[in-house]
Amino acid sequence: MKLLGLMLPLLVSLTLLSGCGEKEKFVIYGSSENEKDVESILKEDYVDKTTVIQYDDSMLVAVQIKPWDKWRKTKLEKKLQKKFDEKYPNKKVFVSADYKIYYEANKIKKDKVENNILSDKITELTKLAKEET
C-alpha cells in the first residue's frame, strides 16, 4: 500500500500534465479543395479536434468532441452530419465522433497513404463505424 501512496500523486500529476501538449486542431488529407469551408463548418464550440480525409466525392470527417459535451455525442454527430449533407448534397460525407475512426484517420495522414487505396480506406472505416456487435 506504500507503493500506492507513491504512485497516486505521480499518476494524477501525469494525467494533469498530459493535457498541456497542444496539437494541430484541424487536419485535412487527400485533396485540399474547399478546405476553408469545411473548417468553418467544423468551427463549433463543442468540437475539439478534427481530421478530414477527402477523396473524389467521398469525405470522412473524424471529430473529437470536448469532454463535457460527450454526453450528447450521438446527437452532435447527427447535427454535424446534417450540416455536411446540406452543404455538399453531391458528396458522400460520413461524420464520426468515435475515437477509433479519429485514430485511424490520423494514421492515414501519418503513413501518407496513396490516393488509389484512399477510397478503400474510407469505405472500410465507414463500415467499421457502423458496426454494432
Binding site: 468515435d98 475515437y99 477509433k100 475512426i101 485514430y103 467499421l128 463505424a129 458496426e131 454494432e132 456487435t133
Partner: peptide, 12 residues
C-alpha cells in the same frame, strides 16, 4: 483494444 484491434469506442 481500440488501437491494436478493429474495435470502435462502441464495440470495445
Amino acid at each position: 483494444y481500440i488501437i491494436f484491434f478493429n474495435f470502435t469506442e462502441a464495440t470495445a
